[in-house]
Amino acid sequence: MTEYKSEEQKRTFYKSGAWNKLRQQALDRDNHECQQCKREGKVHVDSKKVEGERKTIELNVHHKYEIEHYPQLALVLDNLETVCLNCHNKVHNRVFGEQKKKRWDDEMW
């Protein structure tokens, strides 16, 4: 079984034809909409390609069970979910542009 522990192994996987094909199937299945936003009653769809401009990235296809820990599920469609960048960052506990919650709420002296 293939392992996806190193950054190089992950990069190779995410550039593969098998991943690109499965990723497109997940996007099509999820109607190019963020599934987490949908559960929250919101709509976040993919950007439209404008001729002569680079398409902005709005959506990611997320592994519910990460390939690093569950390599056997790396190419399983049911393990994939379309999410917007904001929801994907929340899932991975990445915060950009705002302060992370302080560890201590103690008063400063």
Score class of each variant (00 low, 15 high):
A26N: 11
R11I: 03
P71N: 01
K38Y: 08
E68M: 01
G41S: 02
K101H: 03
F96M: 07
L73G: 04
F96N: 13
E66Y: 07
N89K: 12
K100W: 00
Q36L: 14
K49G: 06
K38V: 01
C87W: 06
G52A: 02
A18C: 06
E66C: 01
N86Q: 08
A74V: 05
Y65F: 10
W109H: 13
N31H: 14
E53S: 12
L22Y: 00
I57Y: 11
C34D: 11
K102G: 09
R11L: 13
N89G: 01
M108N: 11
V50Q: 10
Y4D: 00
E7L: 00
E68D: 12
E8N: 11
C34T: 09
K15L: 07
K49C: 00
E58I: 12
V45I: 10
A18M: 10
F96Q: 09
H88Y: 07
D78V: 02
R103Q: 12
S16F: 03
W104I: 12
F96A: 08
I67G: 02
Y14W: 01
V83F: 01
N86I: 07
V61I: 11
V45W: 00
L59Q: 04
N20I: 01
H63P: 00
G17M: 11
T12I: 15
H32V: 03
W104T: 15
N79W: 00
W19D: 01
E81M: 13
N79P: 04
E107S: 12
E51D: 08
E68L: 05
D46V: 07
C87R: 03
E33N: 09
Q9R: 06
R54H: 10
A26H: 09
Q36E: 12
G52W: 04
H32Y: 15
V61K: 02
L22C: 06
T56L: 13
A26M: 10
R11G: 07
V95A: 13
R23L: 00
R23Q: 08
G52S: 02
Q99F: 14
N20W: 02
T56E: 15
E51S: 13
R23N: 02
E81D: 06
S47D: 09
D78F: 00
Q72N: 07
M1H: 14
C37V: 11
L80Q: 06
Q72C: 04
E68F: 03
S16H: 05
T2H: 13
W104G: 15
L80A: 05
Q9D: 08
E58C: 07
R94Y: 04
K15F: 04
V45C: 00
V95R: 11
E81K: 10
K102A: 15
L77G: 11
V76I: 14
V91R: 13
